[in-house]
Computed example of a mutant assay.
Amino acid sequence: MNKQLNFVRDGVTKLPPGFRFQPTDEELVFQYLKCKVFSLPLPASIIPELNFCNYDPWDLPGELEQERYFFSSKEAKYKTGNRINRATASGYWKATGLDKQIISRRNQIAGMRKTLVFHMGKPPHGSRTDWIMHEYRLVTVTNKDCNSPLAKNPIIQNYLNHHMDKWVLCHIFLKKRTKKSTEEEVIQSCCNDNKEVKKTMAVAVHHEPKIFDFMREKARITDVLSSSSSSSSISSSITEVSSIGEENVEESSSCNIVF
């Protein structure tokens, strides 16, 4: 008899060096969740149990940079309703997009994968974060064309539904930003910075004080004074010439009077 391997220590998955847990959707639903729901042996005890609503995503057990998997029991949001509680201390998990159906080979039991995004704050005004959760659950196939007795027997369906409502499997990880999105953010940031710089320069130019150029003004005053002194010299010369002419006229007149 093979002994089941247990890689869970204190609620944290501990794998040997060189090993990574990277299951497909089908493996998670039909090899782990199905076995958990119906109390069957698991391939390996590698997924711990906890209620994800009791933790913010960054406080969950395990490494922050790694993808984490948990079995979580369904907790009703209200006592009289069937809605699942997905609120935490700092925010809430909000569903996005359409659920993905995962069908078993015998078309008897199917899995559904719901994608949720963690939002900080209170709904509906929470702020979106990069924390993502894939929530897997089991459902029964009710296709009328299916020949399986599970799809037609209501007693079996009720039995299955009762057990399937007990557990969900959560895959929680921090979304990695692509290089393209990072470059776009840098470019946008640079554009915003350039806009701020241009705006500041425009304001500075608009309010730029007028600087008095003393050297230029001194040269201009000197030119004015020079031209003024030249004009004064010419005027004085004209005055002197006029005075000499008047004296000569007066002398001539006096001479004429004497004779």
Score class of each variant (00 low, 15 high):
1 M>Q: 04
1 M>F: 12
3 K>D: 13
4 Q>T: 02
6 N>S: 06
9 R>Y: 07
11 G>T: 02
13 T>N: 02
13 T>Q: 08
15 L>M: 12
22 Q>E: 14
29 V>N: 09
31 Q>R: 04
33 L>Q: 00
37 V>W: 10
39 S>I: 07
39 S>Q: 06
41 P>E: 02
41 P>M: 11
41 P>N: 00
44 A>Y: 00
51 N>T: 00
53 C>S: 05
53 C>V: 08
59 D>Q: 11
60 L>H: 02
67 E>R: 11
71 F>G: 00
75 E>K: 01
75 E>T: 14
76 A>I: 01
77 K>G: 12
81 G>W: 03
83 R>N: 01
85 N>G: 01
87 A>C: 08
88 T>G: 02
93 W>N: 01
93 W>A: 06
97 G>L: 08
98 L>I: 09
102 I>L: 08
103 I>Q: 08
103 I>E: 03
104 S>K: 00
108 Q>R: 00
108 Q>P: 07
110 A>V: 06
110 A>T: 03
113 R>F: 03
114 K>I: 04
115 T>P: 10
117 V>A: 15
117 V>M: 11
117 V>S: 15
119 H>V: 03
125 H>D: 06
128 R>W: 10
129 T>A: 04
129 T>G: 08
131 W>H: 11
136 Y>A: 15
138 L>R: 05
140 T>P: 11
143 N>C: 14
144 K>H: 13
146 C>L: 14
150 L>Q: 10
152 K>W: 01
157 Q>N: 09
159 Y>I: 05
161 N>A: 14
161 N>T: 07
165 D>H: 12
166 K>A: 15
166 K>P: 04
169 L>T: 03
171 H>C: 15
174 L>M: 09
174 L>T: 01
179 K>I: 11
180 K>P: 01
184 E>K: 04
189 S>A: 13
190 C>K: 12
191 C>S: 05
192 N>I: 05
193 D>I: 05
198 K>Y: 02
202 A>K: 05
203 V>A: 14
204 A>K: 05
206 H>W: 15
207 H>C: 13
210 K>M: 08
217 E>N: 11
225 L>A: 15
225 L>C: 13
225 L>R: 13
226 S>G: 10
228 S>W: 03
231 S>L: 03
231 S>G: 06
232 S>I: 14
234 I>G: 08
234 I>K: 13
238 I>A: 12
243 S>L: 15
243 S>W: 15
243 S>D: 09
245 G>L: 13
245 G>W: 02
245 G>P: 11
252 S>N: 10
253 S>K: 14
256 N>V: 03
257 I>D: 03
259 F>V: 12
